[in-house]
């Protein structure tokens, strides 16, 4: 048989066994890239000397090179640096890069440069008057950030964050460069046993596609929820509810 459709369906559950690896890559690297991105955004907004130049250099490099190249740099760079350290200090750090960790670090670094720009723009999008109003009623700067500014910035940032998250799901297919077996590598592996490469990749494509459709849907639900003030509810109804 040239194309075995039944293989496509039977392969799906087999590939799905690698879904947790893909999701771990996506979620962990997204969380850390948000934290790192926030720090970089603060460094830029506060114009902290030295750190600001470092951050600018890093953002420029990270955005100016392909993700796959960055993965290779981390994968082959770590062992080099580790063996240098071992030679100088007599330590015994591993000289083969731990694959999952390397992929997570590399994805975090490549994603954080984008998140930092999004976070900076989002904080900048909040009207200054909101902070002033919060301070003027006696809130502390911290309270104002947590209760007023960040929630407003989040509304602005959610669509770009969502796009980045979806991009990140697809990017994880590059993790094979660090010898991580996630869904794409798994599909290839499975195919190498029965040479059904095309069927395997069709299954893989279907899985990614559905995964991303679900994610987009969840994101747009979240967006609607955040933009509370753009509801379409009859006003007197809303008032009766509040009363």
């Amino acid at each position: 048989m040239i194309f075995d459709i039944s293989k496509v369906f039977s392969r799906i559950p087999a590939i799905l066994r690698y879904l947790p690896v893909t999701m771990e890559l996506v979620i962990v690297s997204t969380v850390f890239s948000l934290i790192l991105g926030f720090l970089i955004a603060v460094i830029k907004i506060r114009r902290i000397p030295v750190l600001r130049q470092l951050a600018a250099f890093y953002v420029s490099f990270s955005r100016g090179t392909p993700a796959i190249v960055q993965l290779y740099l981390f994968f082959y760079g770590f062992p080099l640096i580790f063996s240098l350290i071992n030679r100088h200090y007599g330590t015994s750090l591993p000289t083969v890069a731990p694959s999952m960790l390397t992929a997570l670090v590399a994805f975090t670094f490549s994603e954080a440069s984008y998140s930092s720009e999004t976070i900076r723009a989002a904080l900048g999008s909040v009207d200054r008057g909101q902070m002033e109003a919060a301070l003027s009623i006696g809130m502390t700067q911290r309270q104002a950030y947590l209760r007023i500014i960040l929630p407003e910035a989040l509304v602005f940032a959610l669509p770009p964050f969502g796009n980045a998250f979806i991009g990140q799901i697809k990017n994880t297919s590059l993790a094979f460069t660090c010898a991580v077996v996630e869904m794409t590598a798994g599909a290839k592996l499975l195919a190498s046993h029965d040479y059904r490469f095309f069927e395997s990749y069709v299954s893989l494509a279907i899985i990614y596609w559905i995964l991303i459709i679900i994610t987009s849907h969840l994101l747009s639900l979240a967006e609607k929820k955040l933009k509370r003030d753009e509801r379409i509810v009859p006003h007197d109804f809303a008032d009766r509810q509040a009363a």
Partner: peptide
């Protein structure tokens, strides 16, 4: 700050809070 209050030319109400929530904040 906590014993004075200010009314701004541009209102500066908290954008994602209802009238009631603005006053309660």
């Amino acid at each position: 700050r906590s014993h004075t209050a200010m009314v701004f030319q541009q209102f500066n109400l908290f954008k994602y809070k209802t009238a009631l929530e603005n006053v309660m904040e």
